[in-house]
Nucleic acid binder design. Structure first.
Length: 240
DNA sequence: CGTTTTTGACCTGCGC
DNA sequence: GCGCAGGTCAAAAACG
């Protein structure tokens, strides 16, 4: 269980709630635009302005409600998480890794994350995923996420920079895709069982599709660096 | 010389 | 049961 991914998820939820507000605002603005009104026109024409202001107020109220709902969901989620942790610590033998079975890519397991040119794919999951039942331990272990990374079409390397340390253990050409698929294992932590498959997209050759299986049982290397840096910073006055 | 990557062989699950 | 396809292993090659 990677606690950092849980934290990130709740952060994402907060971001999503922020986006709700942003989207509502944009929606109202686009409505204004479609009606052929700039912000200046709104000031000039009284009756549609009132109507729009009312709509904006209604949207704001709705947004506020959604934010509140999200915070409640987050609270419930965190409480469930702590219950799960408690349960797992009491029954560790029930959570040993399952036998080597092929993980079927069931649709409810897959979250598609589109990221172009950012090179950072560390544990970010959709809100839908964050609401998973905590008792679905196996599902969490087999958690599959996809990351799309745009690269130079001429670049033939299958390297997706995400901060983690990966060791390539195989390459295969699959039937549905003429481009080879590379298989990687995370070796940042010896106990980490996360795997990654990287293959060039059939539709767009400049896009690399990285499929992550499992959840890292260690923090992201960049977080470790930050932690050790802050630790050193705190230690400095003592070493004097 | 140690580490990483490559690549062919082998294993396993699934569909017929 | 058989064949196929995807996934993994491990020896050899490449690299720093």
């Amino acid at each position: 269980m990677d606690s950092s991914s849980w934290i990130n998820t709740s952060l994402d939820l907060n971001i999503n709630s922020y986006r709700v507000h942003e989207e509502v605002t944009k929606e109202v603005e686009s409505k204004l635009f479609s009606l052929g009104m700039s912000k200046f026109h709104v000031k000039e024409e009284a009756s549609p302005t009132i109507e729009l202001e009312l709509e904006l107020k209604r949207a704001s109220a709705e947004n506020k409600k959604l934010v509140e709902m999200l915070s409640v969901v987050c609270e419930n989620y965190n409480s469930l998480k702590s219950h799960l942790m408690e349960y797992m610590s009491k029954n560790p033998e029930k959570h040993s890794p399952s036998s080597k079975k092929r993980n079927s890519e069931s649709s409810n397991n897959i979250s598609k994350i589109m990221r172009i040119n950012n090179g950072n794919s560390q544990g970010s999951y959709t809100g839908e995923e964050s609401c998973k039942k905590p008792w679905e331990e196996e599902t969490i272990k087999a958690k599959i996420s996809r990351v799309y990374v745009r690269t130079e079409a001429s670049d033939t390397s299958l390297i997706v920079k995400d901060g983690y340390q990966w060791r390539k253990y195989g390459q295969k050409v699959t039937r549905d895709n003429p481009f080879p698929r590379a298989y990687f294992k995370c070796y940042f932590a010896p106990t980490c069982i996360v795997k990654k498959k990287v293959q060039r997209s059939v539709d767009d050759q400049s896009v690399l599709v990285a499929t992550y299986e499992g959840v890292h049982n260690h923090p992201h290397p960049s977080q470790l660096e930050a932690t050790s840096a802050s630790f050193q910073h705190q230690q400095l006055p003592l070493t004097r």
